[in-house]
Design a protein around this nucleic acid. Structure first.
Length: 725
DNA sequence: GCGATCAGCT
DNA sequence: CACAGCTGATCGC
């Protein structure tokens, strides 16, 4: 949910005087908003009407009485109350209450010492693994079982949606999510047989559920634009650098890892320092030429015509499109596919009334007659992602009712993959255009590029100030960029084009408007590159604007990385799981294992340096070494270190990173001192993903944590690049 | 001293 | 633009 939306709503209350007023006025329990309630609260209150004993992403007030907690991702606005003394006290005297989240989220949470007290109460659940949990009332012993399935949400590392199945029906809580059009149709676990499940309610991320956000460029498009801008700048000279001005703690990893891969910057170098090495002066005394690139959400309303994912806002400042939330049209696609009986918005966007929102959402829900009986529900058909499964998508004999919970079968827990990366690779190839994959590894940018950027007609004050500051910095020669924000400095990696193969992926077409709406996801390879499917649309059609193609240079001179958001999301979640999860918590027999092979970094460009200051200072910030770990679990990539490994990584990296700034060292020192050394996971070894095409339910999870000695051994193997088996 | 809340800022 | 989240002020426990 958006902070702005939240703030906007809260501001409806008189300041100061309202504080107690808020407490009195709101029901004690932050209930899911009821339609038409007119409540000012714009964020999800934590509870779903179907399963009120669960609390999700809220941990205060009535949520203190929940029997189980769920955390969809590690952003602050979803963690309200999570470290409050009241909840802490409850944990201290409870044997049963648990916090369920993805393994990545668990790692992120426990990286912060302030949440350490959760350690023995967190149960990580593997993504796409239906898991039975028991909700026990510790006073009465009353028990309620339900099955929860985590689905990749594509919002930030570790982010998931929660699918709950129990006596009160099937409900889906999306958390914050960004799924490209068609991705929901490929989520097997939202289907029974070949058709979408009957879902009672969806608690939906409606951050951009406003027609003015009709279209937001895909992750890949944004990445492509940013890459092209960065590439075009840093190839001008070794002293042309880029400052990536990021804000949120988690979510930009995709950007960093893709840039590092595309530009041939080694991860170690990327995180060697978190400041410009010496202000605007390079180490040999020459002045740096810095441009600021600020990722921010840009959208294209229905009537928007040509535009670009990069907007120049000043002499040396740019905005680059980058969104963590689904656009209006993506929300429509998502909801219209699921067609739940009810939908509850988690966010009321600024400028949109709840009534207006429901006018948008309700038509996408299942129709009911006046007796509240199911009248008609178009059943979505699962879009198989593997050719072998394409057949018989409509030939199922399922009736209209869910039967996936019957019978329940149990399987032996399996923590780690049994097959090697190489053995699994062919499976991946079924999901992904291999030529694309190889090309992105081998491709270098022809440099320098001619890139034309749109001049921003209206430069707001913020940007003006920013630019002015930057230019002052360059004059003063000694100032640093704001330390609290992400700074990525890219001294010209002159070798990025030294690769013998400068293959450009000719298959990647400029995405067209229609590609988002007319493409058939059944297409195997094409479906994996939906955003790039050529479309015959007249780009001048106001209702079908062509995006990102103001000039040909911009649209075709850059290749993109191999993963579209669909794959990257899945890969990220799946591939990042498993290293630190409880063996008896996540039990599913992989019917298949998809393997994502992260591109080895270009060796020809190892000289290139990329300094990154990650993320605002704060209690839950990761230091740059943690960023490094997170980078591998970004939507495009697939791994994350365990907490312990991450700390060990910090230790070793700190020793080898003379440019590490004192502030960062201070922040990470307490963590670092606790653990032994270990290495970063090799991408090839981080590959583990799984999906299930059946619905076998594992047993009730417990909270057993992998033993330190086991982890230590595992991490040593990983650090050494050894096989885990 | 700490938490909750809000303004302001980026 | 919006998002995520920071700092600082204020108030209350």
């Amino acid at each position: 949910m958006g902070a702005a939306a939240r703030k906007g709503a809260w501001r409806k209350w008189p300041r100061r005087k309202s504080r107690k007023g808020v407490r009195r006025t709101f029901p004690a329990a932050p209930q899911p908003r009821r339609l038409g309630s007119g409540g000012a609260m714009s964020s999800f209150g934590g509870r779903m009407r179907e399963y009120p004993r669960l609390s999700i992403d809220r941990f205060d007030r009535e949520n203190l009485r929940a029997r189980a907690y769920f955390l969809s991702h590690c952003h602050k606005d979803h963690m309200k109350g999570l470290r409050a003394p009241s909840l802490k006290r409850r944990l201290a005297c409870s044997l049963k209450v648990r916090l369920y989240c993805s393994p990545v989220t668990k790692e992120l949470l426990l990286t912060n010492p302030r949440y350490k007290f959760w350690e023995n109460h967190i149960v990580s659940i593997e993504v796409e693994t239906p898991t039975q949990i028991s909700l026990v009332d510790e006073a009465s012993g009353e028990k309620e079982d339900l099955v929860v399935t985590l689905l990749p949400a594509g919002h930030c590392p570790g982010s998931v949606m929660f699918l709950f199945q129990g006596e009160s029906g099937t409900v889906l809580y999306t958390g914050d999510f960004r799924l490209a059009k068609g991705e929901v149709a490929r989520m097997e676990l939202l289907h029974s047989g070949s058709r979408v499940k009957d879902i009672q309610s969806v608690y939906l991320d409606t951050t951009f559920c406003d027609p003015k956000y009709y279209q937001i460029p895909s992750r890949e498009e944004c990445m492509k634009g940013i890459l092209e801008l960065v590439q075009s700048w840093i190839t001008l000279s070794p002293y042309h650098v880029v400052w990536l001005n990021c804000k949120a703690a988690y979510g930009y990893e995709y950007l960093f890892t893709n840039l590092s891969e595309e530009l041939g910057v080694k991860d170690d170098e990327m995180f060697r320092g978190n400041r410009l090495p010496c202000g605007v002066i390079s180490q040999n005394g020459k002045r740096l030429h810095i441009i600021s690139v600020k990722p921010s959400t840009m959208w294209f309303g229905e009537r928007t015509r040509k535009t670009n994912v990069i907007v120049r806002t000043g002499e040396s400042s740019y905005r680059a499109c980058f969104s963590f939330h689904s656009s209006y049209s993506e929300i429509q696609d998502f909801l219209s596919y699921i067609r739940p009986v009810n939908v509850y918005p988690n966010v009321i966007p600024v400028g949109v009334t709840e009534d207006k929102l429901m006018e948008i959402l309700k038509p996408l829900c299942t129709s009911y007659n006046k007796n509240n009986e199911l009248k008609y529900k178009p059943l979505g058909a699962l879009k198989r992602t593997k050719p072998s499964e394409i057949t018989d998508t409509d030939g199922g004999s399922d009736d209209l009712f869910d039967t996936e919970l019957i019978p329940i079968r149990y399987k032996i827990p399996k923590l780690l993959p049994e097959t090697t990366a190489s053995e699994n690779r062919p499976l991946l190839d079924n999901h992904q255009d291999d030529s694309d994959k190889t090309s992105y590894r081998a491709t270098s940018m022809p440099a320098p590029l001619k890139v034309d950027f749109i001049e921003c007609e209206e430069s707001n004050g913020e940007d003006d100030d920013e630019e002015e500051e930057l230019e002052k910095d360059m004059v003063l020669d000694e100032l640093l960029p704001p330390s609290a924000e992400s700074a990525t400095v890219l001294p010209n990696p002159g070798l990025v084009c030294s690769e013998p193969t400068c293959k450009r992926n000719e298959d990647l077409e400029v995405p067209k408007w229609d590609a988002y709406f007319k493409r058939h996801v059944e297409d195997t390879d094409a479906s994996e590159h939906e955003d790039y499917a050529p479309a015959p649309t007249d780009s001048s059609e106001p209702q079908s604007p062509t995006l990102f193609s103001d000039n040909e240079d911009f649209s075709d001179s850059t290749h993109i990385s191999s993963q579209n958001s669909s794959q990257s999301t899945h890969i990220s979640e799946q591939g990042s799981q498993g290293w630190d999860s409880q063996a008896d918590t996540v039990l599913i027999s992989p019917q298949e294992r998809k393997i994502f092979e992260s591109s080895p970094l270009k060796k020809g460009a190892e000289r290139a340096m990329l300094y990154t200051s990650c993320f605002p200072a704060g209690e839950n910030q990761t230091d740059m070494q943690s960023c490094k770990a997170l980078a591998h679990s970004a939507p495009s990539t697939n791994s994350i270190k365990s907490e312990r490994q991450g700390r060990a990584q910090e230790a070793s990296a700190a020793a080898a990173a003379p440019t590490l700034t004192p502030s960062v060292q201070a922040e990470s020192a307490p963590e670092r001192s606790k653990e032994g050394s270990s290495g970063l996971l090799k991408p090839e070894d981080q590959l583990e993903s799984q999906s299930s095409s059946d619905f076998e339910i594992p047993s009730t999870p417990e909270t057993e944590v992998p033993k330190p000695d086991q982890l230590c051994s595992l991490y040593k193997k990983l650090a050494a690049g050894e096989s885990l088996h």
